[in-house]
């Protein structure tokens, strides 16, 4: 079973591949080749940084079409920027169009944290995640378990039904979203020790149905 980790030059992708291998994936390939991504049985879409840079890198690497294709029909995991890029738009740089797989906006944390100087931006560290659903990717992970986050923007989904997990930073925000064969986390499972590795293990076992 081949897992493609989409490489568009944004961040430390090898960690994701290593973590997948650590939980038993035998054929993980980090690639920007649309043919290889299109031929993989599972796809991981990681990334860090800004939506603007992410979108221009996806265009430059000609990955928009293949992402639209694989996100339609096979287990697909977005991580961090790979979650934010799935939304309609981001408010950064006075508005950036994103992939639009999910309806919603990527907002700066200041909108949640207000003027509280103790809530630093980026949010960096281990925050609790309240699971909103019994999604198969939460299997074996305790309610309220901590995962590692590092981000300055958060996802505000139009449809609350796609929110799979929620955390607090000045106010509640989406820690994970998903529908159908797509799941995406704002946190980094590959850096979240045991619970993170368990989520990746669950992804390897997942048939792409929202509830088992």
């Amino acid at each position: 079973m081949r897992i493609a980790v989409i490489d568009y030059g944004m961040g430390n992708l090898r960690s994701v591949a290593r973590a997948l291998e650590h939980v038993g994936a035998r054929d993980v390939i980090v690639t920007d080749d649309p043919a290889i991504i299109g031929g993989a049985e599972r796809v991981v879409f990681p990334g860090q940084g800004a939506v603007r840079d992410c979108m221009s890198a996806l265009h430059r690497h000609e990955l928009i079409d293949v992402i639209a294709r694989v996100i339609a029909d096979r287990p697909f995991l977005g991580i961090c920027m790979g979650m934010q890029a799935l939304m309609t738009r981001s408010e950064e740089n006075e508005g950036i169009e994103a992939l639009g797989h999910f309806a919603g906006t990527v907002r700066h944390f200041r909108a949640l944290t207000g003027a509280d100087p103790r809530l630093k931006i980026p949010q960096m560290g281990w925050n609790r995640v309240q699971q909103c659903t019994a999604h198969p990717l939460w299997s074996g992970i305790a309610q309220g378990e901590r995962f590692y986050f590092v981000h300055s923007y958060y996802v505000a989904a139009d449809d609350p039904a796609i929110v799979q997990g929620e955390s607090e930073y000045g106010g509640p925000f989406a820690a994970a979203i998903g529908a159908g064969n797509v799941f995406a986390t704002q946190f980094h499972p590959e850096k979240s020790q045991r619970p993170g590795l368990r989520l990746l293990e669950n992804f390897l076992a997942w048939d792409g149905e929202p509830c088992s």
């Binding site: 560290g125 281990w126 925050n127 609790r128 955390s167 607090e168 930073y169």
Partner: peptide
């Protein structure tokens, strides 16, 4: 607030 203080 849910973010933990870190020990490094």
């Amino acid at each position: 607030m849910g973010l933990a203080s870190r020990i490094i």
